[in-house]
Simulated assay, not measured.
Amino acid sequence: MEMPEQPRSRRQTRAAILTHLLQSGGSFRPPLARAVRLSEASLSRIVFDLKTEGLIAEVRRPAPYVGGPTGLVSLGSSVALAAVELTGQWLSVGVGGLSGELHYTERVPLPVKLNLGSVSHVFREALALLRDWTRQRRVRLAQIGVSVPGLGRLSEFGNPIIPCDVGHISDMLGEMFAGVPVAFTNSVVAHATFHRCRTENYPFSGAHLFVFVGQGVAGTWMDDPVEDDALQPVELGHMVFAADGPRCRCGHHGCVEAYTSLPALAELLGVTEADLLRLGNEWVTTIPLLPRVRQELRERLFRLGLAIGNTLNVKPCRGVAISGWPSLLSEDDRKAVVDGIDACLLGGRTLAQVSLAFVPPSTGNDPQAALAFAAFCLARCGGMHAASTEAA
Rank of each mutant, 00 (worst) to 15 (best):
V240W: 08
M239F: 14
A178M: 10
G347P: 07
D224P: 04
G150M: 13
A33P: 08
E125S: 08
A142K: 01
G216P: 08
G94W: 03
T389N: 12
E282A: 15
G150P: 10
E200A: 15
L297W: 03
V139Y: 08
A321M: 04
P288R: 03
R298G: 07
G347S: 13
Y202S: 10
L50T: 10
R14C: 09
Q368R: 07
L345Q: 03
A83T: 04
L91F: 07
G26N: 10
G245I: 03
I46T: 12
V271R: 01
V189K: 03
Q143V: 06
R14S: 12
G340R: 00
F204H: 00
T286H: 07
I46P: 06
L154T: 09
P291L: 11
W283P: 02
Y259S: 05
V256E: 00
L269P: 01
G152H: 13
F210S: 00
T199N: 06
R198H: 08
P111Q: 05
P316V: 00
L269H: 01
A274H: 12
V234G: 03
E331W: 04
P233Y: 02
A374P: 02
C381G: 07
S330V: 09
D275S: 15
V213F: 01
L269D: 02
R198P: 00
V84Y: 01
R11C: 07
A192T: 01
I341M: 02
T286F: 06
D171M: 09
L312R: 00
R153Y: 14
F241R: 03
L43Y: 05
T13A: 10
G54A: 08
D49H: 15
R107I: 04
F48T: 15
T389S: 15
W283M: 05
P233C: 09
S355T: 06
R318D: 00
L50I: 14
P163A: 10
R198A: 06
C248K: 07
A15G: 11
Q143S: 05
A142N: 04
F157H: 13
I287Y: 00
A33M: 12
R196G: 01
A33T: 13
L55W: 06
T272Y: 09
A126C: 06
G324W: 02
D132P: 07
G96I: 12
R300H: 12
Q6Y: 11
D223S: 13
R303I: 05
P288Q: 05
R138P: 04
L351Q: 14
S44G: 13
V234W: 06
L43A: 11
D132E: 15
K113Y: 12
H208Q: 11
G152F: 14
S42Q: 15
G97N: 07
L154W: 12
L276A: 06
C255S: 09
G254H: 11
Q232I: 15
A369V: 06
P326L: 02
L269F: 06
V213I: 15
L72H: 14
L378I: 10
S24E: 10
G68M: 11
P246C: 12
A128G: 04
G158I: 13
R153P: 09
Y259N: 06
V122P: 02
L43N: 05
P316W: 01
R14D: 10
S327G: 11
A242D: 15
